[in-house]
Design a protein around this nucleic acid. Structure first.
Lengths: 236, 236
DNA sequence: AATTTATGATTGGTAAACCAAATCTTCATT
DNA sequence: AATGAAGATTTGGTTTACCAATCATAAATT
């Protein structure tokens, strides 16, 4: 028995198809930023698909900030200019699925920064949250158990304390893929687990003492330990 | 006549409500990673809402990698562990809308890195694309026109050349908001426009010559000029 | 008894019907 | 002619109905 692991290209391609048709229509009709798109009904009729499919495509473009739909009023083109819109749609259509290397690279970039920012901006409540995550991780490890989840929740607590909502969001998007890969390849085996505790503690202390440079430094060392076998990932 | 600019909290709260109910159900029923969620019909019946509302909530959790729904089969819980899932759902529910400062801060972080990476990894085709964007921007400026869009397309071309799909995606998400704010506050006025051209050229040259450190340096100077009035944004 | 096949129930995806808010049109009033 | 109100229309959002792929169960065959 053969198991197909296809990503169902059809579904994605249908949506991509609709997205590019929307772009074409905007260009052909010379619609400008701020203008209203034809109604979902008209689009679905024009493109010979269901309204639902059109709605999904619109939703995706809304996620990227290119459209904005308002209830009982219409879907509007963002004020970013027609040139930027065309360029961005092109990019969106060609986007690759992120590989693991990209994820890790991005993660390190974000974490070095959020550690710094957390040291600068953390509130007392932030500190409390980080402390709890630190403790949960520590106890799991000392109990001899795997603690990948607690590990990453510690890092997410720092991201939250950075006071930067975008970075926090991006960290959340990246994290699940990181976790599953860690568990798959047993990155966090018990042998090195104890040094993890100390590294986390050092990061926490730096954030507590409002030492941004040290926080970044300790985070960097933490990652250097973690990913030392992945030598073609950009750490700095 | 007064225009209400409310963000319609109800709609968001309905979705957040459903999301937290899904989390509660997972916990109450002791569902584990990899398990199948009840069908959308059952969920919609249980939560007393339409199936579409359930589907939207699932789609959002899918975006954050916590669920994965497969056609004609079911919706499955990601293999990230129940602790991580609970923590992440909590974070997702409390996420703030990003303010402009966060966006700019994140943009600078990403761009310094993508410039470096592009210098290391750009292909000839990447270089060609960046060159075209550079030229388009230059010509618009020399023609005395505003060129905010061409400016950011140049930066997006660099992000693409970085070979990091995650960073590319995040740049795309951030860009529209940046553009609208630039145009709103007239950040790119014509006076400084000519020095922009030189700065872009310097960045391009560094990427062309495969000089990662220089590319980052030139990008940093570029931003220092741009945002010198925003002194509480973390540049490094 | 083991394996294959067939059949019916279940599922997420899609299409169609319906709703209430927003907008436009029309017409009466000043 | 300008303005305001009322009604009809249009719109995105929501609900309902339908579809084809999938899966589990059981019957049939070896």
């Amino acid at each position: 028995m053969k198991i197909e692991v296809t990503t169902k290209p059809e579904n994605f391609n249908i949506q991509k198809n609709i997205i590019s048709q929307i772009r074409d229509l905007i260009n052909f009709k010379n619609l400008e930023p701020g203008d209203k798109l034809p109604s979902e009904r008209m689009l679905s009729e024009k493109f010979k698909v269901s309204r639902n499919v059109v709605r999904d495509a619109i939703q995706k473009l809304e996620l990227y900030g290119l459209l904005k739909s308002r209830p009982q009023s219409g879907t509007f083109i963002a004020n970013i200019g027609i040139t930027a819109l065309n360029g961005m749609v092109e990019d969106i259509l060609r986007l690759d699925e992120p590989d693991f290397k990209s994820l890790v690279e991005t993660r390190i970039l974000l974490e070095l920064k959020t550690a710094r920012l957390a040291a600068l901006r953390r509130t007392e409540e932030d500190l409390d949250q980080i402390s709890k995550a630190l403790k949960a991780h520590k106890e799991k490890i000392l109990n001899g158990e795997e603690a990948v989840q607690e590990d990453l929740l510690f890092h997410l607590a720092i991201a939250k304390a950075s006071g930067n909502s975008s970075m926090n969001t991006f960290m959340l998007i990246i994290t699940p893929e990181i976790i599953t890969n860690f568990e798959k390849y047993h990155v966090c085996d018990v042998g090195q687990a104890h040094s993890r505790i100390e590294e986390h503690q050092a990061i926490f202390d730096a954030i507590k003492n409002r030492s941004p440079q040290l926080a970044k430094q300790k985070m960097k060392e933490h990652f250097r330990e973690l990913y030392k076998y992945c030598y073609n990932i950009e750490i700095n």
